[in-house]
């Protein structure tokens, strides 16, 4: 297949060369990115930043996006677990982070619940996760006020499927980590983090579709419910 690569690139290089020869002044280096655009992004970022106003806007947009919000500390978290249990949602999937540790003891305090820790490889747990889990728990690195979006950076302690397969997804968010818009939020992620983990993810609602006669339905292939726990403790 190397020859396919060579042939495609040869054709494209001939074009590229003839265009830059014909018009050397308008040639912009595509690899350095355009500085004009970056300027605008910085201006956007200044209007952002964590603030009380950002939180208000975030909460408004989250609810518009059909994401449920619970605010508070330990007590409110416990109430959330009991409330979900009373709705028959008792089987939790947790990763191996410090957050997962603290939730495990909290969940254990509510009768009738059970927890699975994601400490083996996916292949081993796959059937269990698909068939025997009600709620997945993960944390958000940040949120975007402008669109009501959560930034997740799955890693070894919080695997990717935690936020995908369970029908209910609980996301814990620190209210100090709010950005104004996608531009500033993206810019805040270090390069190494993007490469270090296989996936970086922005979530803005429960999974949904309007593929059947344009009628919006929730719970397409991913979570049917997304709950943000705003940790104010």
């Amino acid at each position: 297949m190397n020859s396919a690569r060579e042939r495609i690139l040869r054709r494209l290089k001939i074009t590229q060369r003839s265009l830059s020869d014909a018009n050397p002044n308008s040639h912009t280096d595509p690899l350095s990115g355009s500085t004009a655009h970056q300027g605008e992004h910085q201006a956007d970022a200044r209007t952002a930043g964590p603030s009380g106003q950002g939180l208000t806007q975030l909460l408004e947009n989250l609810s518009q996006n059909r994401i449920e919000v619970v605010r508070g500390g330990q007590d409110q978290a416990e109430q959330l677990v009991s409330r979900l249990a009373s709705q028959g949602l008792t089987r939790w999937l947790l990763g191996s982070s410090a957050l997962a540790d603290s939730f495990e003891s909290l969940i254990a305090g509510v009768p009738g619940t059970e927890t699975t820790r994601f400490i083996e490889n996916f292949e081993v747990l796959k059937n269990h996760i698909f068939d025997k889990i009600d709620v997945g728990l993960s944390s958000a690195h940040a949120a975007i006020a402008d669109t009501g979006t959560l930034l997740l950076r799955p890693d070894a302690t919080e695997p990717r499927t935690l936020s995908l397969i369970p029908p209910v997804h609980v996301i814990v968010l620190n209210p100090h980590h709010i950005f104004g818009n996608l531009e500033s939020c993206l810019a805040s992620i270090p390069d190494t983090a993007l490469r270090q983990n296989s996936n970086t993810l922005f979530i803005s609602s429960p999974s949904k579709t309007a593929d059947i006669q344009q009628k919006l339905a929730y719970g397409a292939h991913g979570p049917k419910r997304v709950i943000v726990f705003l940790d104010e403790s």
Partner: peptide
């Protein structure tokens, strides 16, 4: 709903 950025296969510790 999702903006998904994929950088490669499962990392060693993932």
């Amino acid at each position: 709903t999702y903006l998904n950025l994929i950088s490669g296969p499962r990392r060693n510790d993932e």
